[in-house]
Design a binder for these strands. Structure first.
Lengths: 148, 148
DNA sequence: ACTGAAAATGACAACTC
DNA sequence: GAGTTGTCATTTTCAGT
């Protein structure tokens, strides 16, 4: 992982469809050399996968919320994880240090669906309460900065 | 946007490197037809971009935190947005309804760097306080579900 | 890490339903 | 309007150096 790799990662985050020749040009390498570096980054799982960024509103997920989940027992175990993974509206789930046990990010079509989701979170074993933060506007959601 | 498009989106979220022939097979269409549908999804900006998912820990961003930012004035304006965009460790910024004005997601190398970031957030005009939720473990962070 | 060649793929066209 | 097949230019991939 040197500076060349970091630039390659930034370029791929910006546009993963560009040709290796273009990537190579961005770092002063040949297409083949750029290809080899990217292959290694994939092997090491620095690059976990190539994916597309989908507009949530366009697929009926225009409402976003963060939900602090309080529990009467340790929530950092696998049954809880699986229960959350089974909920398609839950896009992130984190074990946290702070005012609750978990923080989950939810995306739904409407606030009614958000309410339904909260009911489902409540139904998870050990959950004693939720505190919901509704997103009014997202300034940005961007990939991790690979430099700085 | 029909069910075929939704399956294409799910497939591309899972692996955007696969050939159009493979995409077509997944939905029972020819490579050309799959290509045409994906092109339209890009045109409509349902697909915003093709990108790579980078392991944050591998690029020195292994610490994640959510910061509730309290302010004495309306924070939903552009100078604030630009101030946040200028901070490379801030990966998300949302205007919220709830116990604060903004919620930002921060990724740093260490907790010392997190502390430095909080100082920088405090320095933004109008900010009167922060409440920090440190992530201990992330169960998952996944793309938005395009069906269900 | 570079170059060059072979194989695979993306992009585009003409045509059909 | 949407899909199929066929063609060609580009790109990826894999040698050898």
């Amino acid at each position: 992982m040197d500076d060349v790799d970091r630039i390659l990662l930034t370029e791929l985050q910006r546009d993963a469809t560009q040709a290796y020749a273009a990537l190579g040009k961005a770092v002063g390498l040949s297409a083949g050399a750029a290809h080899e570096r990217v292959r290694k980054l994939r092997d090491q799982e620095v690059i976990r996968r190539t994916t597309v960024d989908v507009d949530p509103a366009a697929v009926g997920r225009g409402v976003a919320a963060f939900v602090l989940v309080e529990a009467n027992a340790w929530m950092g175990d696998h049954p809880v994880r699986e229960a959350l993974e089974a909920l398609p509206e839950v896009v992130e789930a984190h074990v946290i240090a702070g005012p609750a046990s978990l923080l989950v990010k939810v995306r739904t079509a409407t606030t009614e669906d958000l309410q339904a989701s909260l009911r489902r979170l409540f139904a998870i074993d050990g959950v004693t309460g939720t505190q919901t933060i509704v997103v009014l506007e997202s300034f940005f959601e961007r990939p991790v900065d690979t430099r700085g």
